[in-house]
């Protein structure tokens, strides 16, 4: 065939076809999405520290294991209160002339998704300890440790953040203090929060299951009209990262719940207040400030009751179960 004997025509056709399709699936949709998407009204640009933290996140390749996208499927509902939308990424612009835009959506979820980690885990102290060595707070973690973002010093200067590392994870002598880099990286992580949609709602229904598995429909049948919460599971989700599966906390960082007088108090109003509003009453003993986990994570009275009763009855604790009315009363205060 003559056509296939002319290399200009043959290769010309191949590249023309490829360029046409490239325009259709890559160039045109990319340009259009650049043009039509704007940041949500409630979103804020990163501060200079947060931006520096984002650059550390990029430099250390965190995207290799952490996604930043809540997909529109029920499986991803644990990573955010709504699916990610295009506008969520509109603030990501080219880093500079040399480096591309970093939406950091990622393609591997070896570690948790971080779209909303600032809401889920707002404690600076926890993040610092976790960065120094993740296994100090989550023994099963396979995340790398980042000790080069910390320094050892005998005399921490005024305002330096001392990280209470348990002895078995400590390297070098003296106190371990966070460098500016570690604080910037944590600032960036805490800035990762989903922004409410413009109509004021934070939540938007996730798309239904593409293929409901028999197992999940069976469990739906068991569920009654009011949501049932498994206290152990909610504890694992919201509390365990700091207070540990043993309820013993971490010496010098997070106080134990096992045997804690506040937990064991017959009236649950104090513990309810701490979960919802945070607590700094034990900072003088060297413990970190407790963030208002219940409020930031929108914990319902029923889930709160499940958590409170779980910690009041585990690890040798034997306080009486709190009734839902007691919880509601405490919340009203």
């Amino acid at each position: 065939m003559k056509y296939y004997e002319d290399h200009r025509k043959l290769f010309g056709t191949a590249i023309a076809l490829f360029l046409g399709l490239t325009y259709f699936v890559a160039i045109a949709p990319a340009l259009r999405n650049e043009a039509i998407n704007e940041p949500l009204p409630g979103s804020e640009p990163l501060s200079s520290d947060e931006q520096a933290g984002k650059e550390l996140y990029i430099a250390n390749g965190c995207v290799a294991c952490h996604t930043q996208q809540v997909r529109d499927i029920p499986m991803d509902a644990s990573w955010g209160s709504r699916p990610s939308i295009a506008a969520d990424y509109a603030r990501s612009q080219r880093t500079d002339l040399w480096r591309n835009t970093a939406t950091l959506m990622g393609t591997e979820r070896t570690g948790p998704d971080l779209t909303d980690v600032g809401t889920r885990q707002p404690s600076v102290d926890w993040h610092l300890l976790h960065l120094y060595n993740p296994r100090a707070v989550v023994p099963e973690s396979v995340m790398p440790a980042y000790p080069w973002m910390f320094q050892n010093t005998d005399m921490p200067a005024e305002g330096q953040k001392v990280v209470p590392v348990p002895d078995s994870y400590r390297r070098g002598s003296g106190k371990i203090v966070a460098t500016e880099e570690a604080l910037q990286l944590v600032a960036y992580l805490l800035s990762l929060k989903q922004v409410p949609l413009p109509d004021g709602s934070l939540t938007e229904a996730f798309a239904p299951e593409p293929t409901p598995l028999p197992a999940s429909s069976a469990s739906d049948g068991e569920a009654s009209s009011t949501p049932q919460f498994d206290g152990a599971r909610s504890y694992q989700k919201h509390c365990q990262a700091c207070h540990q599966p043993t309820g013993k906390g971490l010496a010098g960082a997070f106080p134990p719940l096992a045997g804690s007088p506040i937990v064991l108090e017959e009236d649950p109003s104090k513990i309810v207040s701490i979960v919802m509003n945070g607590y700094d009453g034990r900072v003088s003993e060297g413990y970190a400030v407790m963030p208002p986990i219940g409020t930031t994570n929108n914990i319902s009275p029923e889930e709160l009751q499940a958590i409170v009763n779980y910690i009041r009855s585990s690890w040798g604790n034997d306080a009486p179960a709190a009734e839902i009315d007691q919880i509601r009363t405490a919340l009203a205060e």
């Binding site: 990319a30 999405n33 835009t101």
Partner: peptide, 25 residues
């Protein structure tokens, strides 16, 4: 060879791909 040159140019020309454009590319 032709396609590799094309995709490298599309992916690396340093003046576009803001926001979601980066992900599509």
């Amino acid at each position: 060879l032709m396609f590799l040159v094309t995709i490298v140019l599309v992916a690396y020309l340093p003046f576009w791909q803001q926001g979601l454009g980066e992900t599509i590319v």
